[in-house]
């Protein structure tokens, strides 16, 4: 149990620093800013008791916001995908009960995993870009940003999941 707390605290801090110090300065093709810190949401163990998880996701998003001066944009988006995560997994797996303790993304088949990762990433980016740009840009500009960024972040997250979970087995 302590091990779980330790791993997730380290993950929280490392992902936060990686996002604000490195990835926020990376701009692919001039405007794509890949978002990796939501990997935290994908890797956090699934439990019935999800109060702490919601608070942590909110805090992680808020920390990114504090560093990048974006109000509560990332906090709102990260909290949303943290809340949606379990219902979405039920939906994807098409069953209502599963083994919470042993579950990780590796238990899903490839298509399920891709749907899971990309739909949560898409939802997150949609909220972020809508809240950030609703005042100044039109629907097409925003949706282009959301789609292109989702592809890059999704790929980045998928590879990270693959890499991190492989080491543990």
């Amino acid at each position: 149990m302590n091990n779980v707390i330790f791993t997730n605290s380290v993950r929280f801090i490392l992902l936060l620093l990686l996002q604000v110090l490195v990835l926020n300065h990376v701009l692919l093709f001039g405007y794509i800013n890949p978002i990796l810190y939501i990997l935290f949401v994908f890797l956090y163990p699934i439990k019935k008791e999800k109060g702490i998880f919601l608070v942590l996701s909110f805090l992680l998003g808020l920390s990114v916001d504090i560093f990048s001066n974006s109000g509560g944009v990332n906090a709102a988006a990260t909290l949303l995908i943290a809340y949606i995560r379990l219902p979405l997994l039920h939906l994807i797996q098409n069953k209502t009960e599963f083994d919470y303790l042993l579950f990780n993304i590796k238990k899903l088949n490839l298509i399920q995993a891709i749907v899971y990762i990309f739909s949560l990433t898409f939802l997150h980016h949609l909220v972020v870009f809508l809240l950030e740009f609703y005042k100044t840009q039109n629907v097409f500009d925003i949706s282009e940003k959301v789609l292109v960024t989702t592809i890059f972040s999704g790929i980045l997250i998928s590879f990270s999941v693959q890499l991190l979970l492989k080491n543990k087995q």
């Binding site: 919601l54 608070v55 909110f58 998003g61 808020l62 916001d65 001066n69 974006s70 109000g71 509560g72 944009v73 906090a75 709102a76 909290l79 949303l80 809340y83 809240l131």
Partner: peptide
């Protein structure tokens, strides 16, 4: 979830 979302939105509007 609702309470935290409300906090996040109020920060966003402020910003």
């Amino acid at each position: 979830f609702l309470v935290l979302e409300l906090i996040a939105f109020s920060f966003t509007i402020q910003s």
